[in-house]
Write a protein that binds this DNA or RNA. Structure first.
Lengths: 225, 225
DNA sequence: TAGATTGTTAATCGATTAACAATC
DNA sequence: TAGATTGTTAATCGATTAACAATC
């Protein structure tokens, strides 16, 4: 291996990192619409942020725009993709091929956005050998083997909550260092392993909180009227 | 309607609101394990945050703990549920019954966490009358009717990206004021409507960014060795 | 050159954290 | 009372934003 990307150490704020994929998606939309160049104002609108924030975010990556002109869509797309690390595909395993696992395996955006599903694993023998999105479902015990063979660094957990911690432990032991967890509840992992969590009912509850306050305001106005 | 919840106006920071559902989940876990009382330290551990943050968050709701003792699990559960607004069920419609819509409709955590799926809608006639999770899939055109009849305030979009904006527009016109969007891409809505977005490939790209930096560090160490 | 737009500065705002007085 | 733990304060840290000098 060679020494590369020496400025990878330059640290980009976490809030900015979380928006880079949003910019990438917005740039793709612009490119599909035939746009070759865009201003920070246009790109910000497409991404749903304000332009000051966009420019500040991009400034952490470097100077990829032209004053008075804007950004070259293709060039900026490449620079952001490179910074995120999705100029090549990352091999991914999905564990838990229930309803959600099916949906994830079939998600076509995967491939086009820097990821390649190399294996679908499930502990239930009744699911084995089934084809999902053209990929055979294999026993969970093959995890270690697959991680080593395919150089998998990222794992997706789509199991029921009770199984999630055990799956995470096995993933970490096998060498996986990034986990996307769709199972409800907290999983704990050693330092150096990143976990991101997607929880449907948490998202809905956050909406419910705001919804309740809107309703409370409406009630109050109703009473006054 | 009666005037209620006068302190609903007291504003709770957004970061705190986003964690309240996490605390609720952690409390449920503790209750299931038979725990009647817990310290901020224990609850924080179960929720995956530090205890100072937990206490600060809870302080926005009121004083529901006992110094020297801790929190009564059942009482705190109720107080947080009340604050979030999930002491009764919110009716929800899901639009787009593909793989993901199926998974969402079948998600059992829905019902137990304050939500009730009242309708599944899809624009494709071939999906109509199909039963998903015991609920009949109905034409998208019934949206307005269902929203009014069932008093739906929260809508879930699980359609392909191209349809998402049109669905959102119809939802807003029908009176929905909170949207959970699983379709990739930005949707725009008027002020007063809340949108939360769940995007699989964005989550994976955030993991990829950190993964790449771990790999870069390993490379550098490799070269030095 | 004149107009446009970036990249950066500096002020402001919000979130986190440690420490500890209050109090059970 | 002594020990434990909350609720709050205040300091710190990180994120957002407006404004504008730099520059195409």
């Amino acid at each position: 291996m060679t020494a590369r990307n020496p400025d990878a150490a330059r640290d980009i704020p976490e809030a900015t990192v979380a928006r880079l994929p949003v910019y990438l998606r917005a740039l793709t939309t612009l490119a599909d619409a035939g746009t070759a160049t865009c201003s920070s104002e246009e790109l910000a609108a497409a991404a749903g942020v304000n332009s000051a924030k966009l420019r500040k975010d991009l400034s952490y990556l470097g100077s990829y725009g032209t004053r008075g002109v804007g950004y070259d869509v293709e060039y900026l797309t490449y620079q952001i993709a490179r910074e995120i690390g999705v100029t090549q595909d990352w091999p991914v395993v999905i564990v838990g091929i229930g309803n959600l696992g099916h949906a994830l395996a079939n998600y076509s955006g995967f491939r086009s956005r820097g990821f390649r599903v190399v294996a679908l694993l499930d502990a239930d023998p009744r699911r084995h050998d089934e084809l999902v999105a053209g990929i055979e479902v294999r026993p969970f015990d093959e995890l270690e083997h697959i991680v080593v063979e395919s150089g998998v660094a990222i794992g997706v957990i789509a199991t029921p909550a009770v199984a999630a911690q055990a799956v995470a432990d096995r993933m970490v032991a096998a060498g996986i260092t990034s986990i996307l967890n769709f199972a409800p509840g907290v999983i704990s992992v050693p330092d150096g392993v990143d976990v991101r969590k997607v929880d449907l009912s948490i998202e809905l509850q956050i909406l419910a909180y705001h919804e309740q306050r809107k309703a409370a305001g409406a009630d109050a106005r109703e009473v006054v009227r």
